[in-house]
Nucleic acid binder design. Sequence first.
RNA 1: GCGCCUGUAGCUCAGUUGGACAGAGCAACGGACUUCUAAUCCGUGGGUCGCAGGUUCGAAUCCUGCCAGGCGCGCCA
Length: 555
Amino acid sequence: MRLKKILRDLITSAVENARTAGELTFDALPAFEVEAPKQAGHGDLATNLALVLAKPAKLPPRKVAEILVSRLAAPEGMLSKVEIAGPGFINFFIADAFWYLVIPEIHALGQAYGNSGLGAGQKVQVEFVSANPTGPLHIGHGRGAALGDALANLLAATGHEVVREYYINDVGNQILTLGKSLYFRLRELKGEVIEFPEDGYQGGYMKDLAKDYLDQGRPAPPSPPHEDTLIELGRYAGDAILAEIKQDLNDFGVRFDEWFSETELYRQGLVEKSFELLKERGFLFEADGALWFKATEFGDEKDRVVRRSNGATTYFASDVAYHLLKFQQGFDLVVDIWGADHHGYVPRLQAAVQALGCEGRLQVILVQLVSLLRQGEPVAMTTRGGTFVTLREVLDEVGKDAARFIFLTRRPDAQLEFDLELAKQQSSENPVYYVQYAHARLASVLRQAAAQAIAVGEPDSRLFPRLSLPEELALLKLLAGYPELVEAAARNLEPHRITYFLTELASQLHSYYNKHRFITEDLELTQARLALVSVVQTVLAHGLKILGVAAPETM
RNA sequence: GCGCCUGUAGCUCAGUUGGACAGAGCAACGGACUUCUAAUCCGUGGGUCGCAGGUUCGAAUCCUGCCAGGCGCGCCA
């Protein structure tokens, strides 16, 4: 049910009719809103059209409102009351009978209710996590993972064709650094004391890796090592770490369609190709022996090197080529989810995207850092130094569903404080259980009904008028607004709106449950109520699925 | 110094793209389980929306300037 749209159309024709009749004169119809007022007494939906139209029409707002109301041609039985209020708002009260229509609609659509064709024909890539395979995923990656996965689910639900991608940075000297770090640990296990490599990865996971390496019966590398040996060790370490990353993500309920390796860009000659393209367009120049991209042409604060004077291409060059490839693959929209510490990088990449002629097709979402607390004390997190809390630890301590829900209860651009002890402590009172409990509770009720041989089949519209309690109407209204909420969340790339909706829906459900029985002596009343709560359960499951959180049958 | 993000109840956070008396969870206090799952419900207390101006019929939301916190400013990745 797209109530806002229906009403908006009605209002638009009312204003056009008034104009045709000469009651209102204005040039262009100004933008106006049709929204649910915060105040319950102000109706189900309200519009500010009379307010914004007052000036162009040169009439007092309330007068404009009167004209609009007189021209309104709503279908029979849809509106129970229309009133002009305050400075000139028009408040619409929807008739109960109209809300009932949502029950058979959800019943018929099932898990398709909430889906839409909003993004039909739109190909979207969501690239997220993309952590370098130099260490285990930490809690910050977890936030990006939860967001990216939920966003991809959301876009898929709204009809977009979605590809989830993980970009693996496996070019450059980090492989060598990784190799040196592993080499150090191997020698150490052999009882040697050598100097720890500069910039080496100190995390304990490197020790474990070295131990595994030897346990597999591999010989310890020679001393001193060849560079080839170090690179080989680096590859070994990188592969092993990537395998763990994949495992962690899998256990976090996150899946990817593509694991794209940076090496592939070079194998396909895409970096050179992107250079040629930029050169043709006149956005490359040479200076100080290096090759530069004219990022300043597009508002970046300085020009950027793409090929260093030593001949090596930069990380940025890879990224330009990578994004060229994305657009060549036909994506209408590419979403990159990055940690906020990379924000300074956004203008140069957007500049490159513009230079490639794809302006507006890249959207970068910056996920602010997760500052981790343990019993109120901040925990510093660096991969290199080796002090961090891993995603694995969070998974083990607070669980997948609770962790995902916590991440998805915040806007990405706000910093998040995650207190491990608190998250564990509160795990039984965590909001995620509140929503899941609502789902499980309904499952239980429906099981009871089945056990008593009460049929919860096709909803019988004749019984709906039995649903006249305020709690029942509140639920119906929430359900009716769900598809439009999903669309708004998708348009704004904000999965957290789903989280808040679910909490609200669960709240109404619990309240209803505690005040009234669903299975009663009155069979017709029972059937009407079961029809309602059954579709509540359907929508809870749909929303939880978008978030990637389980919808349990029992708890 | 410059740039990006943030500043809303004791704490953690929402706030429908500028609307009508500012919301939730946790924490505090007081109540509700012989009844479909009490991981629940009902009630009470708690906010100059960082500060100061401006735009507007109307501002937590937009603009400007301060203040505070976080992050970033390589021919690193």
